[in-house]
Write a protein that binds this DNA or RNA. Structure first.
Lengths: 234, 234
DNA sequence: CGCTCTACCGTACGCTGTACGTTAGGGAGA
DNA sequence: TCTCCCTAACGTACAGCGTACGGTAGAGCG
């Protein structure tokens, strides 16, 4: 009955590391990181599960390869203008990279793909650091600003991705959010319930949310670079 | 030989939802979210695995309960001072809550504990929103600022947690980071290699990193509230 | 004493990642 | 052309996961 046909043996060189990573990324973006499994990927490729292990030591190594593929392929935009405008463009581009590749973002954020980055993956970081160093900030502030920007970008993208796992799910999640706000007792949380509509729409517009926060950070950086503003403590 | 003794049946009412959550949190904080399993938790409690299912529908419900326990127990600090100083204190306190309970943070960030929050869990958010509303920002800006602050806080805490999973591992990770920087080709990444020392120390001091970024955001918010600064685009 | 109710438990199923040993097909040498 | 070998692809197996389902025992009550 359900006796699955034993699957014809795949031709000798039908596989390659690149092809595996291709399909893996497709599967990840399509079904999500939870649904990904070596068996599923192998089936997708029309191949036995263990065939994958000829090219990758294990799942984590495959994940690293997928991460490096995406980060290595990515090219930061050519920017011009003042350093803060360029930073804004760079960061926004990173944000879009991450939200466009939710599964890769999760690989990064959830530590499924630890380990050294490929050299090419650091191009954007290089740009960011260069701009910060040329902005008038001292070295320590520049380093911390870089950390702030990348942390904020990843954090925001992660939030955005969590909000709408699948494409069409956004409205469903928004509905859930609305109910969550509605469930709050207005006496205990007056400000929260009062601002609920705005909070909901803000949450729905992830990119607007991100650019808003990015604007705040850049504003702070300008102040700091001009050094006519009290430096944030320590 | 390895015939494990079948474990004496546990006395009739030796279990409770609270006790289970207690041990679950202990296990999570101790061994990490990866090592957690229903079987391990049950063994820790000296109880059969399926006993847990009399109190929780499944693992996710247990995670939700653990999350609500931590978030519900937490009390935001009593603050005083200007709205931005209070916001700083509140956010810093949240940051410390999260970094002090890495596993709960991961539950939140990785979506292992989706679903409605307990009412008590929203106290901090209520405070944040209240302060923002009283700061002079318009409603939409206040809503977005709230999102920015919470996103940045969670993102930063997540970064910090990733950096040192176990207590003593920080130095090891720092070493790894150092090697990662050393592996970069100085020609392709001049700014990055130049700033490597500062980037490394910044990364090691997660809290300093966080307060720096928080300062930037608050600076931006002050500008925006005083409305003598161009509002960040859209 | 006996009955019922339910907290606790054992077993089993389908899933996961992957260690290990096997097989078969293409290329090289005789 | 025949043969041999190397290795890409594979099947099996194992430990561990979450949990559905049915059984069991012990406490409380009539």
């Amino acid at each position: 009955m359900s006796q699955s046909v034993p699957r014809r043996r795949a031709p000798r060189n039908s596989l390659s590391a690149e092809l595996i990573v291709d399909r893996a990324l497709a599967l990840l973006d399509q079904k999500g990181i939870e649904a990904f499994s070596m068996r599923a990927l192998a089936e997708e490729l029309g191949v036995g599960t263990m065939a994958l292990y000829t090219y990758f030591r294990g799942k984590e190594e495959l994940f690293r390869a997928a991460r490096d593929r995406v980060l290595g392929t990515y090219q930061p935009p050519c920017t011009s203008g003042s350093w803060d405008e360029q930073l804004r463009a760079l960061c926004l581009s990173m944000y879009e990279l991450f939200t466009g590749r939710p599964s890769v973002l999760q690989l990064l954020a959830e530590g499924k793909a630890e380990g050294d980055f490929a050299d090419a993956a650091s191009v954007t970081m290089e740009q960011v650091v260069k701009l910060l160093c040329g902005s008038g900030l001292d070295r320590q502030a520049a380093a911390r600003a870089a950390g702030t920007l990348i942390g904020f970008t990843i954090g925001s993208a992660l939030r955005q991705v969590r909000e709408c796992d699948e494409e069409g799910q956004m409205t469903a999640k928004a509905e859930l959010l609305r109910r969550r706000f509605a469930a709050l007792s207005p006496e205990r949380h007056p400000a929260l319930t009062d601002l609920a509509p705005e909070l909901t729409v803000a949450r729905e517009d992830g990119e607007g949310q991100y650019t808003f926060g990015l604007g705040l950070i850049l504003c702070g950086l300008r102040e700091l670079a001009g050094s006519d503003c009290a430096a944030p403590q320590s």
